[in-house]
Design a protein around this nucleic acid. Structure first.
Lengths: 332, 332
DNA sequence: TTGTAAGCGTTATCAA
DNA sequence: TTGATAACGCTTACAA
C-alpha cells in the first residue's frame, strides 16, 4: 500500500503538499495539484484512515448504542443513521445494551475508548444525569428521549399527539366505548401516549373510565392478558387503543380466541407502525413513529455540530402520523 | 487524557514496560506490573485505540455488509455478530448495500479503506470472482452464501433440508396435494428449497405437478398473486409450501380474501421464521433459518483465524429446524 | 525482565 | 504557494 511519502516523491513535492491536496485544504496551485493527483492515481494511493485519525484527532466515526439489533424500531433508526453517515463518508460503530443499565454504560465506555467523534444513544435504562455528564465529554445526541438542558441534542416523537391521533381515529369511526392497553407508566413514551388518548376522549366529550384501562408492559403477552382482563369487566367496549403494536397483536389474538370477528366485533389501533403491523390480520391501523427519520435527524445534528455541515436544518420533535389499514370498523 | 508516557513516568518504568503490561504480553515481574497498574489507575489511563492500531497495524474492527439494517434476517445476523464481537472486545463497522452491485462494491471499498481486520459479507448482488479476489486481500467470511474454493469461509444454511422439512410437515398431516410458491430460481436459496420440496414429495410417492407450482419473487405480493394463480388451475390442493414467510403471508391474505378459513381450508408453511411469523394469523409454521447463529459463527471464524482464538469449533453449514405453530391443519 | 529507539502514516505549525 | 519537521500515542525489534 502506497503511502503519502511515495506519492510526494513521485510528484516531486513535499509531504505537506500531498496532504493539502488530499484535504482540499490550503491553496495549492493547479499545476501542483494535478501533478499530485496523477501520482496518487499511478500508485493507487489510498489514505490510511488510522494515521489520519491519529494525527488529526478525529476518527470520522460515530458510535451508536441501541438495545438490540433486531426489531423493527432499531432497524429503521439505524437505517436512517447509516444512510446519512455514509453519504458524509463517516462510519458507524454499533453496540447493543440490551436495555440493561450496566451493559449500556459499558457500551458507552467502549464507544468512547474507540475514540468516536460523537455518540448517538438510544437508551432508557440510564438516568438523565449520567447522560448529561457524558454529553459534556463528547458530542452526544439522544434518540427517543428528551432531557431538559440538552434538549437541543435530543430527538423525540410527539407521543401525546400520536396517542391522540390513534384514539381520534377510533372516535371518528363512531366508537365511544374505547378501552386502553398501556405500556409501562414509567416510560415517558407510554405515559404521553396515554395522555393523548385521554385528550382525544375529553375533546369529544367522552368519559375516561378506569375499568377500561389495562396496564401492560409493551410485550405481546400483556396485550393478550389485557384483552381478557378487560373483557371480564362489566363495562362494554367496541374498540381498544394500544400503547404499541405488540400489545395490539396480543389483544387481537385474545379476541379471536374468544370468537370475536375482527374488525367487525372489535376495532383495534396500535402504535409504532412496527414492521409486522401490515402482516397482522386484519392489517393494523397504527401510528407511525418516524423511526427512520429520527435516525436521520440524529445524524444531521452531528453532521452539523461536529462535522460542520452548515446547510442543515434541525428538527428535534417529530410529529407522528396515522397509518390507516383495516383494523378499525365503523360503528353504525 | 493521560498517555502511556505519563504512566511510565509515574510508575518509574519505560514506555515499553507499560505497553507490555497492557498487552499482557511478555513476562513482566509482578512487582513492576502492580506498580504500572497502580499508576494507570491513578491517572485514569485508557489506551488510545487509534494509536494502538497505527502502531500494531490492527484495528480490532470487523466490517460488516448487509443489504438493509431493518428486516428480521439481517437484524438477527447482526445481533449474532455483535454479541460475539463485543465479548472479544472487537468492534463492528456497518454498511449497507441495498442489494445493488455498485453500492455493495463501494461499501466493501469503504470497509477496506477503514482498515478493518476482516470482513463479514452478506451479499447476493456481487459475483463469485469478485468475492474470491477480495478474500485474497483481506480475511473475509461470507454469510448465506457458498462459493467453491473458499467454502471454509462461507456460512450457509442447508436450504434443501429446510425445504424438505417444510413439505414433510405438510405430508405428515395427511396432505397430498401440495402447491409450491417459489422464490426466484436464480437465487440458490430458493432453488435449493424447491429441491427439498421435490425430495419430500418423491420420498412419499407423491407426484410433483407443474400446475401446482408458482414462481414468485420472495415478496409478499407475489405470494398473494401466487395463491390466486394457483386457484385458477383445475388441480386441487389442500396446502401450500412457500419459499419464504413473506410469500406465505401474501398467500394467506389472498386465501382469506377468497373466503377460505385458515388453516381448516388451506394449510400453509413458510420459510425463514421471520420476525413477523408468529404475528400472522394463523401463526405461521415455518423453518427457522438460524440467522443469529450464522452471524455468531461467521464471527467465530474471524475470531479464530484473525484473532487467534484457538478453542473454537467451526461449522460452515447450518441445519434448519421446523418451527411448529398453527398454520397446518390435519387432513382427516 | 527491562530499556532504547525506530517506526506506523498522517496532520499541522512554522518558516521560507 | 510550498517545504521542513515536530507531533499524534502506541508497538516492537534489538540491546542490555
Amino acid at each position: 500500500m502506497a503511502t503519502i511519502y511515495e506519492v510526494s516523491e513521485l510528484a516531486g513535492v513535499s509531504l505537506a503538499t500531498v496532504s493539502r491536496v488530499m484535504n482540499n485544504n490550503a491553496k495549492v496551485s493547479d499545476k501542483t495539484r494535478t501533478k499530485v493527483l496523477q501520482a496518487m492515481d499511478k500508485l493507487g494511493y489510498k489514505p490510511n484512515s488510522i494515521a489520519q485519525s491519529l494525527a488529526s484527532n478525529r476518527t470520522n466515526s460515530v458510535g451508536v448504542l441501541v438495545s438490540e439489533l433486531h426489531g423493527g424500531f432499531f432497524g429503521f433508526i439505524m437505517d436512517g443513521i447509516e444512510n446519512e453517515l455514509r453519504i458524509a463518508n463517516k462510519h458507524i460503530i454499533i453496540t447493543t445494551g440490551h436495555s440493561d443499565e450496566a451493559q449500556e454504560k459499558s457500551a458507552i465506555d467502549f464507544l468512547i475508548s474507540r475514540k468516536c467523534d460523537a455518540l448517538i444513544l438510544l437508551t432508557d435504562s440510564v438516568d438523565d444525569d449520567y447522560l448529561i455528564s457524558i454529553s459534556k465529554t463528547i458530542p452526544t445526541v439522544l434518540v427517543n428521549r428528551k432531557i431538559n438542558g440538552i434538549a437541543n441534542n435530543c430527538i423525540s416523537l410527539n407521543n401525546e399527539q400520536g396517542g391522540y391521533l390513534a384514539t381520534k381515529a377510533l372516535i371518528e369511526k363512531g366508537h365511544e366505548d374505547i378501552a386502553y392497553i398501556a405500556g409501562p407508566d414509567w416510560k415517558v413514551d407510554s405515559h404521553d401516549r396515554l395522555l393523548g388518548h385521554k385528550k382525544a376522549l375529553t375533546e369529544h366529550n367522552l368519559a375516561y373510565k378506569t375499568e377500561l384501562f389495562f396496564q401492560g408492559d409493551f410485550n405481546e403477552d400483556s396485550g393478550f392478558d389485557g384483552f381478557n382482563q378487560l373483557k371480564t369487566a362489566a363495562t362494554k367496549f367496541t374498540a381498544i387503543a394500544c400503547g404499541n403494536d405488540e400489545m395490539a397483536s396480543g389483544a387481537m389474538k385474545a379476541a379471536r380466541k374468544q370468537g370475536l370477528d375482527l374488525p367487525k366485533d372489535l376495532s383495534i389501533v396500535g402504535f409504532d407502525n412496527n414492521m409486522f403491523a401490515s402482516y397482522l390480520y386484519p392489517e393494523l391501523t397504527t401510528v407511525d413513529n418516524s423511526a427512520y427519520f429520527m435516525g436521520k435527524m440524529a445524524t444531521d445534528i452531528i453532521l452539523k455540530s461536529v462535522y460542520k455541515q452548515d446547510d442543515i436544518t434541525i428538527q428535534n420533535v417529530f410529529e407522528p402520523k396515522l397509518v390507516q389499514r383495516n383494523s378499525i370498523a365503523s360503528i353504525s
